[in-house]
C-alpha cells in the first residue's frame, strides 16, 4: 500500500534474525491489507455486538416472567456480562476462514508450494493468524471499548491480579487451541475434497458446546443416562468450552481455586493433543497427497 498507514518496515526487518524476519514481513503485509479497509472493519466489529442486544432483552424478559433472581447461578447482569465476555474470548479463539482455506489449498493444489519450499505450512498459517489477530485487536479495540464502557454496569468488581493473569493465560491458550482445532479440521481436505458441510457442522457443535450460545452451567440439570453425570459435566471435559465459556467464567469468578488450576491444566492437555493430531494429520495427509501440473 503506497503512501500507506505504516512506515517502511525494512529497517526493522533487517535488524531481526532470519526466522523472525519472515514473521515480521507476514505481519506487515497483513497489517497493510487489513488497515486498507479499517472503517469497514470497525463498523463490522461494532455490528457483531447487535445479537447481544437481543440476548440482553431476551434474558431480561425471561427473568421478569420467571420471578427469579438467579438462573443456573447467573443473575441477569451476570448473563449480560457473560455474553459480552464471550465476545472477547471469541475474538481470540475464532479462526474465520482457516479450515476452509486449508481445505481449498489442498483441493486447488496451491498447498504444493509449501511442500517444496523450506517453510512449514502450519507455522506459516500460525504466523499469519497472529498477524491477523493483532490487526483485529488494533482496529476492534475502539468498538469493544465503547460497548464495554456503555455496559460497565453489568459487570461485577474486577477480579484480583492472579485471576486476571489466569484469564489472560486462558485467552492465549484459547487462541492456540482454536487455531489447532480448525487447522486439523481443514486437513480433513486431504481425505475428502469437499469439506464445507463438515466445517459447518463443526461450527454448529462449537457454537452449542463452547458456551457461546448460553452458559454451559445451564446444562447442569440435564441428565445423560449415567448416574450423577449431567450434560454439563460431559461438556466441561470437551475442548470447546475453552473457546468461549472458560475464560468468561474465570473473569466472572465462577471458576476459582483448584478448579481454575485444573481447568487450565486440562486446556493445556487439549492443546498438546490438538498440536499432535494436527501434525499427524499433516504428515499422513501429505503422504497420500498427489499434486499434478505446474
Amino acid at each position: 500500500m503506497s503512501g500507506g498507514v505504516l512506515t517502511d518496515p525494512e529497517p526493522v526487518a533487517r535488524s531481526l534474525p532470519a526466522g523472525l524476519h519472515t514473521w515480521w514481513r507476514m505481519l506487515v503485509i497483513c497489517l497493510e491489507e487489513r488497515l486498507a479497509y479499517r472503517s469497514d472493519f470497525a463498523i463490522g466489529t461494532l455490528m457483531r455486538f447487535l445479537p447481544i442486544v437481543t440476548q440482553v432483552f431476551l434474558w431480561t424478559a425471561v427473568f421478569a416472567a420467571s420471578n427469579r433472581s438467579d438462573i443456573a447461578g447467573y443473575s441477569r447482569d451476570n448473563i449480560v456480562a457473560y455474553y459480552l465476555l464471550t465476545m472477547i474470548t471469541r475474538a481470540f479463539s475464532s479462526m474465520p476462514g482457516l479450515a476452509g482455506g486449508i481445505a481449498r489449498s489442498i483441493r486447488d493444489g496451491s498447498v504444493k508450494k509449501y511442500l517444496i519450499q523450506p517453510v512449514d505450512y502450519v507455522s506459516f498459517l500460525l504466523a499469519s493468524r497472529v498477524a491477523h489477530k493483532v490487526v483485529y485487536y488494533i482496529v476492534a479495540i475502539v468498538p469493544f471499548a465503547i460497548v464495554f464502557f456503555v455496559c460497565r454496569g453489568y459487570f461485577p468488581a474486577p477480579p484480583d491480579g492472579l485471576t486476571v493473569l489466569a484469564y489472560l493465560l486462558s485467552l492465549v491458550l484459547s487462541f492456540l487451541l482454536g487455531f489447532f482445532l480448525e487447522a486439523t479440521l481443514g486437513m480433513i481436505g486431504f481425505w475428502f475434497l469437499e469439506v464445507s458441510s463438515i466445517i459447518f457442522a463443526y461450527m454448529l457443535l462449537q457454537y452449542l458446546l463452547s458456551g457461546h450460545m448460553f452458559p454451559i452451567d445451564m446444562l447442569e440439570g440435564i441428565p445423560t443416562g449415567l448416574s450423577g453425570v449431567s450434560l454439563a459435566d460431559v461438556v466441561h471435559w470437551l475442548p470447546f468450552q475453552y473457546t468461549a465459556y472458560f475464560p468468561a467464567s474465570v473473569w466472572l469468578g465462577k471458576i476459582q481455586g483448584w478448579d481454575l488450576v485444573l481447568g487450565l491444566a486440562v486446556e493445556v492437555v487439549w492443546l498438546v493433543v490438538m498440536v499432535l493430531v494436527c501434525r499427524l494429520a499433516w504428515w499422513r495427509g501429505t503422504c497420500r497427497y498427489s499434486g499434478f501440473g505446474g
Binding site: 424478559a61 425471561v62 421478569a64 416472567a65 443456573a72 450460545m213 448460553f214 445451564m218 446444562l219 440439570g221
Partner: peptide, 17 residues
C-alpha cells in the same frame, strides 16, 4: 433446544406477554 432450555426456567417470555 435452546428455547426448550429457556422454558425450563420460565413459563413465558416476557411477563404477561
Amino acid at each position: 433446544a435452546f428455547y426448550l432450555l429457556i422454558f425450563s426456567f420460565t413459563p413465558e417470555i416476557g411477563r404477561d406477554s
